[in-house]
């Protein structure tokens, strides 16, 4: 698989502020890549530069095979984007919004009409197609925006905080679409978020961004392994088997794992990556004739990673009221 996006010291300065600071990233074709970071980290600025609507101060990027500085027009044909702020014309219907967008991408006639209906169906808005967007809920608008971004079959899809300001149920709904889009359409997706759960659930790989810099990069598991230890709790039937042999073998699973026996029958094992180790735990138990009654594990979270790297936390409450207000009002209060 090739690279969908490669950035080369991509930088944006606003006056003295380094909003994006010499970013070097490579995003593979077909993956969902997440930019995770707190407010003001530079996520939107990065996406806007990659989507060719904002000029970098320094550095450049290759998107879908073209240089953002030299060939923005070719890139525009191959990307779809859902902006962080709402960008639907509220005075038009869902269908009309889609139609205008289709024409902007050179689609027309019967083919356009069919694509629109198919996509509206895909996001379950077909019944609402002739209703003015004014009357849509936040989640419906988001789904319409997603449908709109898919109209011209982009190779790369940018989703800037796709579930910001939505309630938990709607967020889960939008996640399902994103997962389906990846599966069914095989698109490369670059999404930004400041929700840990979202990044973890959706992304194949994640770059953690703070103050315009990439401070960590990897799969969610790799990132968590970087800092924290997962802990596996095993409850065994104490009478049977060779408990001490079991514990010795558990200790040898990986070099820096530690095993504690909390009498009489609870064992905690700290390991790098719990899901990978669990089958081994069962095998060992079998060999030593131990019966496992219960097994649980807790994982290091991405927030632990962020905390370890920066000494701060990413705000982690999902779908909060402040987010809602922030998205709706930011356009008005933003001063340039």
């Amino acid at each position: 698989m090739g690279s969908a996006i490669i950035t080369n010291n991509l930088t944006k300065k606003y006056g003295e502020l380094l909003a994006v600071d010499h970013i070097n990233l490579e995003i593979k074709s077909g993956e969902i890549f997440g930019l995770l970071g707190p407010n003001g980290a530079g996520k939107t600025t990065t996406i806007h530069m990659l989507a060719t609507i904002l000029k970098p101060t320094e550095g450049t990027a290759i998107v879908a095979g073209y240089d953002i500085r030299k060939n923005p027009k070719e890139i525009r044909k191959k990307i779809g984007i859902v902006f962080q702020d709402m960008t639907i014309d509220r005075n038009l219907t869902g269908y009309e919004n889609m139609w205008i967008n289709g024409r902007l991408y050179g689609l027309s006639g019967k083919a356009l009409e069919e694509s629109i209906l198919e996509l509206l169906d895909y996001v379950e808005l077909k019944d609402w197609k002739d209703v003015e967007v004014k009357k849509y809920s936040g989640g419906m608008i988001r789904r319409l925006e997603i449908a709109r971004s898919l109209l011209h079959h982009p190779e790369i899809l940018f989703l800037d905080e796709p579930t910001i300001g939505l309630d938990p149920q709607t967020r889960a709904h939008v996640w399902d679409y994103i997962i389906r889009i990846k599966k069914e359409k095989g698109m490369t997706i670059l999404l930004t978020t400041h929700y840990m759960d979202e990044a973890e659930k959706l992304c194949d790989r994640i770059a953690i961004i703070d103050h315009g810099k990439i401070i960590a990069l990897g799969t969610p598991d790799e990132l968590k392994t970087m800092v924290g230890q997962d802990i596996i709790y095993v409850r065994i039937q104490s009478q049977n088997g060779r408990v001490s042999g079991f514990i010795e073998k558990l200790k040898s699973i990986n070099s820096n794992s530690s095993v504690n026996l909390n009498p009489p029958n609870l064992i905690s094992i700290s390991v790098k990556n719990a899901p990978n180790v669990i089958p081994t735990v069962f095998e060992i138990a079998d060999e030593e004739g131990i019966k496992i009654i219960e097994l649980k594990y807790s994982r290091a979270s991405l927030d632990d990673v962020f905390l370890k790297l920066t000494g701060r936390r990413i705000r982690d409450e999902s779908g909060s009221w402040t987010d809602f207000v922030r998205t709706r009002m930011r356009a008005r209060f933003r001063r340039r």
């Binding site: 027009k73 525009r76 902006f83 709402m86 960008t87 991408y105 356009a331």
Partner: peptide
């Protein structure tokens, strides 16, 4: 510009002159 629709036009490959 304020409510974002401009971005939709700018990010599309459509000729801005024609738009």
């Amino acid at each position: 510009k304020e409510f974002g629709y401009l971005k939709v036009v700018l990010v599309s490959p459509a000729s801005r002159k024609a738009s």
